[in-house]
Computed example of a mutant assay.
Amino acid sequence: MKTLTALATVAVIGMTASLAHARDLGPDEALRLRDAGTIQSFEKLNATALAKHPGAVVQETELEEKFGKYLYQIELRDPQGIEWDLELDAVNGQVLKDHQDT
């Protein structure tokens, strides 16, 4: 029983720690970072994502700071109705993740 309790405690601490390292940035902070040149423009980031899936439409975007990095997350829907989740480095525009939403 002690082992089970210890494992549960470790799991909760691990989940809490990972949450502490990621935070969503609000519109004001996102615009401040863009205007300061810290991150790329949202238009450029969107264009990079859309180039991976021609004809797709942006469904949702989010800027997040995780482990000191600015990540731009974007959800797309392509002409066939398939949804895609992409994650870009908001500083240099590199595509970090590109996978079909399940």
Rank of each mutant, 00 (worst) to 15 (best):
A47T: 01
A90N: 02
D35S: 09
L71Q: 10
P79G: 02
Y72R: 00
D24R: 12
A8R: 06
Y72N: 00
K66P: 04
A17N: 07
A36T: 03
Q73D: 14
P27H: 14
A36G: 02
I82K: 10
E62K: 15
E62G: 09
L76R: 07
D28M: 12
K44M: 06
A17M: 08
T9D: 06
A6M: 12
I13E: 01
R23H: 01
L31R: 15
D89I: 07
L25S: 05
L86D: 02
N92P: 02
D24G: 13
K69P: 06
V10G: 02
M1I: 07
E87M: 13
N46A: 11
H99S: 09
H21R: 14
T16M: 08
R34T: 09
A8G: 10
K2F: 11
L19D: 11
K69M: 09
K69L: 13
G81N: 03
G55Q: 14
Q100I: 15
H53L: 09
Q100F: 12
M1D: 08
S41M: 04
R23D: 03
T5A: 15
I13S: 00
A36Y: 03
E29R: 10
T61W: 09
A56N: 11
V91Y: 03
A49T: 03
R77F: 00
Q40Y: 00
M1W: 05
R23C: 05
V12C: 01
T38V: 00
L71G: 03
D85P: 01
D35C: 06
P79C: 05
E62W: 13
W84R: 13
A30K: 02
M15W: 15
T9E: 06
T48D: 04
L86C: 07
E87T: 15
I39V: 06
T48Y: 04
A6Y: 09
A22L: 03
Q59D: 13
L33T: 05
R32A: 11
P27W: 14
E87D: 10
T102H: 08
H21F: 09
E62N: 09
A22Q: 07
R23E: 03
Q40I: 04
T16Q: 04
F67S: 13
E87L: 13
E60A: 11
F67G: 11
W84H: 14
D85S: 06
G26D: 08
L19T: 12
V10K: 08
V10I: 11
D35G: 05
Q94R: 12
I13K: 01
L4G: 00
L63H: 05
M1Y: 05
P54R: 10
I74D: 03
F42R: 12
I74S: 04
Q100V: 14
F42S: 10
D78F: 07
K66G: 04
E60C: 07
D78N: 12
Y70K: 02
H99F: 06
K97G: 00
A49G: 04
N92R: 04
I82Q: 11
E29S: 10
G81V: 06
E83N: 15
